[in-house]
Design a protein around this nucleic acid. Structure first.
Lengths: 207, 207
DNA sequence: GTCTATACGCCGATAGAC
DNA sequence: GTCTATCGGCGTATAGAC
């Protein structure tokens, strides 16, 4: 894996090189139809390539494409979490920053968020961990643990707090991505953050 | 589809007929490995059948097996929701009954709940609706709408209430099924119900 | 580095004997 | 109603020309 595209910055203006075109086409198709319903022929067609063999110049196999996307997305997420932790002090601020990022990504890069939330990556990336065990979410768990010790967050099992907090956030975003909620993520952002945060915060204002 | 097993009552003592053995084997394998990672050969082996052709005596194709499971599970869920609505008056009681059912199913029939919550059925049952548009969940939406009119539930978009309420419930159950939460569903039932209900209830006690 | 041509295997599905 | 045998096709992957 000597090539890494910044999958979270799809809108970059640089004309895509072939490996990037393949990755972007694959991301789009995986998000649309799922990994198993997407053939290499589909990817080649969507990436302005005549035939599948060209793909093998850049990736060992189909799984590697998915793995590269996976690593790219989670590396970026992980880096964003790091930055948010550094520029914010309190757990509430850090979590708020992360929620804002996820909502922004849902509007700006829905394919990335679909890959993140809706695809069951363990079906085609056998060795990959579930969402909440990825480095980014392990750090989020830490934020919650620190928040509990600091008295910001109620004293409950941190994993349960994760379950509740991201249950609200991820389910809301999933329903936006699937169209069950019909407005842009931006329209739900403020109230969803409040709902999720008040659920785990120590001093809940109950709206 | 002239045969319908009660997929939600796996523990029934009657010795399984061949179609039922096929369905139960398929359910288990789909929940374990996913639809696309499960071949008809896998299903035949797991169902005490020598070869795949026997399967075609009972089902038109692989997709039909999945569809039969899907219909069976959702028919049962729908019937349970009907019964809960008939035996309970208030929206809070009806929702509580549904939550209790889902938690009980998670412990008693984890494969059914995995099919329900973790499998992306639209990938292999193209015509099927997302979870929240199934008859059972449409009725649940009605319960919420009635609850809002009755003053039991806060006056917010019913779909948003669904998103929050079942975000907590389904994510908690998903994490139990995947092992990210390590106790039985029963251990989380009471507090998770309270968290989800207080989130949408009008007069929240905030614990 | 992209394309032509092709190999290979797996899996879904069918025909037909018993 | 279950099994033997086999087909056909799709999709991954490779070899090699240009």
């Amino acid at each position: 894996m000597d090539q890494e595209i910044d999958t979270l910055q799809i809108s970059s203006e640089t004309p895509a090189q072939t490996p990037d075109k393949i990755l972007l086409a694959a991301l789009k198709l995986f998000a649309e139809k799922g990994y198993f319903n997407t053939s290499l022929t589909d990817i080649a067609n969507a990436a302005d390539i005549k035939i599948t063999s060209t793909i093998y110049q850049h990736f060992n196999n189909k799984q590697t494409i998915a793995l590269t996307l996976y690593n790219s997305i989670f590396d970026n997420l992980n880096a964003s979490v790091d930055e948010i932790r550094q520029t914010n002090e309190k757990s509430s601020e850090q979590l708020h920053g992360i929620v804002n990022l996820l909502f922004k990504l849902t509007d700006d890069a829905p394919d990335v968020m679909t890959f993140l939330l809706l695809l069951k990556t363990s079906d085609f990336l056998a060795e990959q961990k579930p969402l909440l065990e990825t480095p980014a979410f392990v750090k989020i768990l830490k934020i919650i643990q620190i928040g509990i010790r600091a008295g910001e967050i109620r004293n409950i099992d941190p994993m349960v707090a994760m379950a509740y907090f991201f249950g609200i956030i991820n389910n809301t975003l999933s329903m936006i991505l699937s169209g069950e909620l019909d407005k842009k993520a931006d329209a739900y952002q403020a109230q969803t953050w409040l709902a999720a945060w008040n659920l785990i915060a120590k001093k809940s204002t109950c709206f």
